[in-house]
Amino acid sequence: MSTHADAHDHHHEPGLQHQFENMKQQEESVSIGMWMFLVQEIMFFGGLFTAYMVFRWRYPMAFAEGSNHLDAFWGGLNTVVLIVSSLTMALAVYYAQKGIRNMQVIMIVLTMFFGTVFLGVKAIEYTDKYNNGLIPVAGWNKKSTGAEVAEKAQAFAFPWEVKTEAAAAKDGEKKTYVNPRGDFQWNYGHELVKQAETAGYLTADEKIHYYSNGQIDPFKFQEKVRMFYFIYFVMTGLHALHMVVGLLLMAWLLWKAWIGTFTALYYSPVEMSGLYWHFVDIVWIFLFPLLYLLGRHFIH
Protein backbone atom coordinates (compact mmCIF):
# COMPACT_ATOMS: atom_id res chain seq x y z
CA MET A 1 0.00 0.00 0.00
CA SER A 2 2.66 2.45 1.03
CA THR A 3 4.60 2.21 -2.22
CA HIS A 4 1.62 3.42 -4.21
CA ALA A 5 0.58 5.98 -1.65
CA ASP A 6 4.02 7.55 -1.60
CA ALA A 7 4.05 7.79 -5.35
CA HIS A 8 1.32 10.37 -5.07
CA ASP A 9 2.64 13.70 -4.09
CA HIS A 10 -0.25 15.24 -2.21
CA HIS A 11 0.93 14.06 1.17
CA HIS A 12 2.03 17.41 2.43
CA GLU A 13 -1.26 18.09 4.20
CA PRO A 14 -1.13 16.79 7.77
CA GLY A 15 -3.56 13.99 8.56
CA LEU A 16 -4.57 13.37 4.94
CA GLN A 17 -5.17 9.68 4.33
CA HIS A 18 -4.10 7.91 1.16
CA GLN A 19 -7.52 7.34 -0.31
CA PHE A 20 -8.46 11.01 -0.44
CA GLU A 21 -7.47 13.68 -2.89
CA ASN A 22 -7.56 16.56 -0.47
CA MET A 23 -8.53 17.65 3.03
CA LYS A 24 -11.98 18.82 1.98
CA GLN A 25 -12.90 15.39 0.67
CA GLN A 26 -11.59 13.75 3.81
CA GLU A 27 -13.48 16.06 6.15
CA GLU A 28 -16.67 15.65 4.19
CA SER A 29 -16.32 11.87 4.33
CA VAL A 30 -15.64 11.83 8.03
CA SER A 31 -18.54 14.16 8.69
CA ILE A 32 -21.04 12.14 6.65
CA GLY A 33 -19.71 8.98 8.27
CA MET A 34 -20.28 10.43 11.72
CA TRP A 35 -23.81 11.52 10.86
CA MET A 36 -24.60 8.08 9.49
CA PHE A 37 -23.29 6.64 12.73
CA LEU A 38 -25.60 8.96 14.66
CA VAL A 39 -28.55 7.89 12.50
CA GLN A 40 -27.67 4.34 13.47
CA GLU A 41 -27.53 5.37 17.15
CA ILE A 42 -30.92 7.06 16.93
CA MET A 43 -32.48 3.87 15.61
CA PHE A 44 -30.65 1.87 18.30
CA PHE A 45 -32.21 3.95 21.07
CA GLY A 46 -35.42 4.04 19.04
CA GLY A 47 -36.03 0.35 19.71
CA LEU A 48 -35.84 1.06 23.44
CA PHE A 49 -38.20 3.99 23.14
CA THR A 50 -40.68 1.75 21.31
CA ALA A 51 -40.56 -0.74 24.18
CA TYR A 52 -40.99 2.14 26.63
CA MET A 53 -43.96 3.42 24.66
CA VAL A 54 -45.74 0.08 24.50
CA PHE A 55 -45.39 -0.61 28.18
CA ARG A 56 -46.11 2.91 29.35
CA TRP A 57 -49.20 2.95 27.20
CA ARG A 58 -50.26 -0.29 28.82
CA TYR A 59 -49.42 0.50 32.47
CA PRO A 60 -49.46 4.31 32.73
CA MET A 61 -50.12 4.50 36.46
CA ALA A 62 -47.53 1.90 37.39
CA PHE A 63 -45.04 3.91 35.36
CA ALA A 64 -46.13 7.10 37.11
CA GLU A 65 -45.82 5.44 40.50
CA GLY A 66 -42.36 4.14 39.69
CA SER A 67 -41.29 7.44 38.21
CA ASN A 68 -42.37 9.28 41.33
CA HIS A 69 -39.87 7.31 43.28
CA LEU A 70 -37.03 8.48 41.07
CA ASP A 71 -35.40 11.61 42.37
CA ALA A 72 -36.41 14.40 40.02
CA PHE A 73 -33.90 16.68 41.68
CA TRP A 74 -30.94 14.49 40.80
CA GLY A 75 -32.37 13.88 37.36
CA GLY A 76 -32.83 17.59 36.79
CA LEU A 77 -29.39 18.35 38.14
CA ASN A 78 -27.92 15.80 35.76
CA THR A 79 -29.75 17.39 32.87
CA VAL A 80 -28.18 20.72 33.76
CA VAL A 81 -24.76 19.11 34.19
CA LEU A 82 -25.02 17.52 30.78
CA ILE A 83 -26.14 20.77 29.15
CA VAL A 84 -23.16 22.54 30.69
CA SER A 85 -20.89 19.84 29.31
CA SER A 86 -22.49 20.29 25.91
CA LEU A 87 -21.73 23.99 26.11
CA THR A 88 -18.08 23.35 27.00
CA MET A 89 -17.89 20.81 24.18
CA ALA A 90 -19.29 23.31 21.70
CA LEU A 91 -16.73 25.82 22.96
CA ALA A 92 -13.95 23.24 22.60
CA VAL A 93 -14.88 22.94 18.93
CA TYR A 94 -15.05 26.71 18.68
CA TYR A 95 -11.54 27.13 20.07
CA ALA A 96 -10.26 24.28 17.93
CA GLN A 97 -11.53 26.12 14.86
CA LYS A 98 -9.72 29.18 16.07
CA GLY A 99 -6.63 27.08 16.71
CA ILE A 100 -6.31 28.24 20.32
CA ARG A 101 -4.70 25.28 22.04
CA ASN A 102 -4.93 26.30 25.69
CA MET A 103 -8.65 27.09 25.66
CA GLN A 104 -9.25 23.87 23.74
CA VAL A 105 -7.53 21.86 26.44
CA ILE A 106 -9.42 23.69 29.19
CA MET A 107 -12.76 23.12 27.51
CA ILE A 108 -12.08 19.42 26.94
CA VAL A 109 -11.06 19.05 30.58
CA LEU A 110 -14.24 20.83 31.67
CA THR A 111 -16.33 18.58 29.41
CA MET A 112 -14.69 15.54 30.95
CA PHE A 113 -15.27 16.96 34.43
CA PHE A 114 -18.98 17.47 33.86
CA GLY A 115 -19.28 14.10 32.17
CA THR A 116 -17.75 12.50 35.25
CA VAL A 117 -20.07 14.48 37.52
CA PHE A 118 -22.99 13.14 35.52
CA LEU A 119 -21.81 9.57 36.00
CA GLY A 120 -21.22 10.27 39.70
CA VAL A 121 -24.78 11.49 40.16
CA LYS A 122 -25.97 8.46 38.23
CA ALA A 123 -24.02 6.23 40.62
CA ILE A 124 -25.63 7.97 43.60
CA GLU A 125 -29.06 7.40 42.09
CA TYR A 126 -28.37 3.76 41.32
CA THR A 127 -27.11 3.24 44.86
CA ASP A 128 -30.26 4.81 46.20
CA LYS A 129 -32.40 2.44 44.12
CA TYR A 130 -30.25 -0.44 45.32
CA ASN A 131 -30.73 0.52 48.93
CA ASN A 132 -34.45 0.75 48.39
CA GLY A 133 -34.65 -2.74 46.95
CA LEU A 134 -35.63 -1.43 43.54
CA ILE A 135 -33.22 -3.33 41.32
CA PRO A 136 -35.45 -5.27 38.92
CA VAL A 137 -33.11 -8.25 38.93
CA ALA A 138 -34.11 -11.24 41.00
CA GLY A 139 -31.62 -11.85 43.78
CA TRP A 140 -29.86 -8.52 43.57
CA ASN A 141 -31.69 -6.87 46.46
CA LYS A 142 -30.55 -9.21 49.23
CA LYS A 143 -28.86 -6.52 51.22
CA SER A 144 -32.03 -4.57 51.50
CA THR A 145 -33.30 -4.64 55.03
CA GLY A 146 -36.51 -2.80 54.48
CA ALA A 147 -37.39 0.11 56.75
CA GLU A 148 -33.97 0.51 58.32
CA VAL A 149 -32.24 0.92 55.00
CA ALA A 150 -35.03 3.00 53.60
CA GLU A 151 -34.23 5.42 56.41
CA LYS A 152 -30.54 5.27 55.77
CA ALA A 153 -31.13 5.70 52.07
CA GLN A 154 -32.00 9.31 52.71
CA ALA A 155 -28.33 9.77 53.47
CA PHE A 156 -27.33 7.78 50.36
CA ALA A 157 -25.77 4.69 51.80
CA PHE A 158 -23.36 2.97 49.43
CA PRO A 159 -23.51 -0.80 49.08
CA TRP A 160 -20.48 -1.31 51.24
CA GLU A 161 -22.02 0.77 53.99
CA VAL A 162 -24.92 -1.58 54.30
CA LYS A 163 -23.87 -4.66 56.12
CA THR A 164 -24.48 -7.96 54.49
CA GLU A 165 -26.30 -10.63 56.35
CA ALA A 166 -23.12 -12.50 57.11
CA ALA A 167 -21.26 -9.45 58.33
CA ALA A 168 -24.15 -8.46 60.52
CA ALA A 169 -24.25 -11.90 62.05
CA LYS A 170 -20.55 -11.64 62.83
CA ASP A 171 -21.15 -8.39 64.63
CA GLY A 172 -23.74 -10.18 66.67
CA GLU A 173 -26.44 -7.82 65.54
CA LYS A 174 -29.95 -9.07 65.26
CA LYS A 175 -31.70 -7.87 62.14
CA THR A 176 -34.80 -8.85 60.36
CA TYR A 177 -34.22 -9.36 56.69
CA VAL A 178 -37.47 -8.71 54.97
CA ASN A 179 -36.25 -9.74 51.57
CA PRO A 180 -34.10 -12.84 51.88
CA ARG A 181 -34.49 -13.82 48.22
CA GLY A 182 -33.52 -10.38 47.01
CA ASP A 183 -36.62 -9.79 44.93
CA PHE A 184 -37.67 -6.46 43.57
CA GLN A 185 -39.93 -4.91 46.18
CA TRP A 186 -42.47 -2.19 45.95
CA ASN A 187 -43.31 -0.98 49.46
CA TYR A 188 -44.11 2.56 48.49
CA GLY A 189 -47.87 2.51 48.25
CA HIS A 190 -50.41 2.73 45.50
CA GLU A 191 -51.71 6.25 46.02
CA LEU A 192 -51.38 7.28 42.41
CA VAL A 193 -53.50 4.43 41.15
CA LYS A 194 -56.18 5.21 43.70
CA GLN A 195 -56.07 8.91 42.88
CA ALA A 196 -56.22 8.13 39.21
CA GLU A 197 -59.22 5.93 39.80
CA THR A 198 -61.07 8.66 41.65
CA ALA A 199 -60.12 11.18 38.98
CA GLY A 200 -61.43 8.78 36.35
CA TYR A 201 -58.15 8.20 34.51
CA LEU A 202 -57.99 4.50 35.16
CA THR A 203 -59.44 2.54 32.27
CA ALA A 204 -60.98 -0.89 32.58
CA ASP A 205 -58.06 -2.31 30.61
CA GLU A 206 -55.57 -0.91 33.03
CA LYS A 207 -57.51 -2.18 36.03
CA ILE A 208 -57.21 -5.71 34.66
CA HIS A 209 -53.46 -5.37 34.99
CA TYR A 210 -53.43 -4.13 38.59
CA TYR A 211 -56.56 -5.53 40.22
CA SER A 212 -57.63 -8.81 41.68
CA ASN A 213 -61.17 -9.15 42.99
CA GLY A 214 -61.93 -5.48 42.54
CA GLN A 215 -58.99 -4.14 44.48
CA ILE A 216 -55.32 -3.50 43.92
CA ASP A 217 -53.24 -6.65 44.01
CA PRO A 218 -49.89 -5.51 45.43
CA PHE A 219 -48.03 -8.30 43.73
CA LYS A 220 -49.53 -7.68 40.31
CA PHE A 221 -48.89 -3.98 40.66
CA GLN A 222 -45.32 -4.58 41.81
CA GLU A 223 -44.61 -6.52 38.63
CA LYS A 224 -45.71 -3.56 36.51
CA VAL A 225 -43.58 -1.14 38.50
CA ARG A 226 -40.72 -3.56 38.12
CA MET A 227 -41.17 -3.26 34.37
CA PHE A 228 -40.75 0.50 34.70
CA TYR A 229 -37.54 0.05 36.67
CA PHE A 230 -36.27 -2.46 34.14
CA ILE A 231 -36.78 0.00 31.31
CA TYR A 232 -35.34 2.79 33.45
CA PHE A 233 -32.18 0.82 34.15
CA VAL A 234 -31.73 -0.34 30.56
CA MET A 235 -32.25 3.12 29.12
CA THR A 236 -30.13 5.04 31.60
CA GLY A 237 -27.59 2.23 31.70
CA LEU A 238 -27.14 2.27 27.96
CA HIS A 239 -26.98 6.05 28.07
CA ALA A 240 -24.33 5.89 30.81
CA LEU A 241 -22.37 3.42 28.68
CA HIS A 242 -22.42 5.95 25.88
CA MET A 243 -21.17 8.55 28.34
CA VAL A 244 -18.27 6.30 29.29
CA VAL A 245 -17.39 5.85 25.62
CA GLY A 246 -17.66 9.62 25.23
CA LEU A 247 -15.27 10.15 28.14
CA LEU A 248 -12.73 7.79 26.59
CA LEU A 249 -13.08 9.72 23.36
CA MET A 250 -12.48 12.93 25.30
CA ALA A 251 -9.39 11.49 26.96
CA TRP A 252 -7.94 10.69 23.54
CA LEU A 253 -8.94 14.12 22.31
CA LEU A 254 -7.33 15.75 25.33
CA TRP A 255 -4.05 14.05 24.57
CA LYS A 256 -4.25 15.06 20.92
CA ALA A 257 -5.12 18.63 21.83
CA TRP A 258 -2.35 18.72 24.44
CA ILE A 259 0.32 17.86 21.90
CA GLY A 260 -1.15 20.51 19.63
CA THR A 261 -2.50 18.33 16.83
CA PHE A 262 -5.44 20.53 16.05
CA THR A 263 -5.11 23.69 14.08
CA ALA A 264 -7.52 25.96 12.31
CA LEU A 265 -6.94 23.74 9.25
CA TYR A 266 -7.30 20.36 10.91
CA TYR A 267 -9.76 19.96 13.73
CA SER A 268 -12.34 17.47 12.46
CA PRO A 269 -11.72 14.92 15.27
CA VAL A 270 -12.77 17.55 17.81
CA GLU A 271 -15.85 18.35 15.78
CA MET A 272 -16.80 14.70 15.30
CA SER A 273 -16.36 13.87 18.99
CA GLY A 274 -18.49 16.93 19.67
CA LEU A 275 -21.28 15.55 17.49
CA TYR A 276 -21.22 12.33 19.47
CA TRP A 277 -21.23 14.16 22.79
CA HIS A 278 -24.19 16.33 21.79
CA PHE A 279 -26.06 13.29 20.60
CA VAL A 280 -25.68 11.65 24.02
CA ASP A 281 -26.91 14.89 25.54
CA ILE A 282 -29.99 14.86 23.30
CA VAL A 283 -30.84 11.33 24.39
CA TRP A 284 -30.80 12.52 27.98
CA ILE A 285 -32.96 15.53 27.12
CA PHE A 286 -35.66 13.00 26.22
CA LEU A 287 -34.94 10.52 28.99
CA PHE A 288 -35.32 13.12 31.73
CA PRO A 289 -38.99 14.02 31.22
CA LEU A 290 -39.94 10.52 30.06
CA LEU A 291 -38.46 8.73 33.05
CA TYR A 292 -38.35 11.18 35.94
CA LEU A 293 -41.39 13.40 35.59
CA LEU A 294 -44.34 11.08 35.05
CA GLY A 295 -47.46 11.74 37.06
CA ARG A 296 -45.79 14.32 39.26
CA HIS A 297 -48.88 16.47 39.12
CA PHE A 298 -50.92 13.86 40.93
CA ILE A 299 -49.16 14.33 44.22
CA HIS A 300 -48.82 18.09 44.21
Binding site: S86, A90, G274, H278, I282
Partner: peptide, 13 residues
Protein backbone atom coordinates in the same frame (compact mmCIF):
# COMPACT_ATOMS: atom_id res chain seq x y z
CA UNK B 1 -37.62 18.29 24.63
CA UNK B 2 -38.00 18.60 20.86
CA UNK B 3 -37.29 22.31 21.05
CA UNK B 4 -34.18 21.70 23.12
CA UNK B 5 -33.03 19.00 20.73
CA UNK B 6 -33.58 21.23 17.73
CA UNK B 7 -31.53 24.00 19.30
CA UNK B 8 -28.71 21.63 20.20
CA UNK B 9 -28.66 20.20 16.70
CA UNK B 10 -28.86 23.49 14.88
CA UNK B 11 -26.27 25.38 16.87
CA UNK B 12 -24.11 23.04 18.95
CA UNK B 13 -23.96 20.44 16.21
Amino acid sequence: AFTKMTVVMLYFM
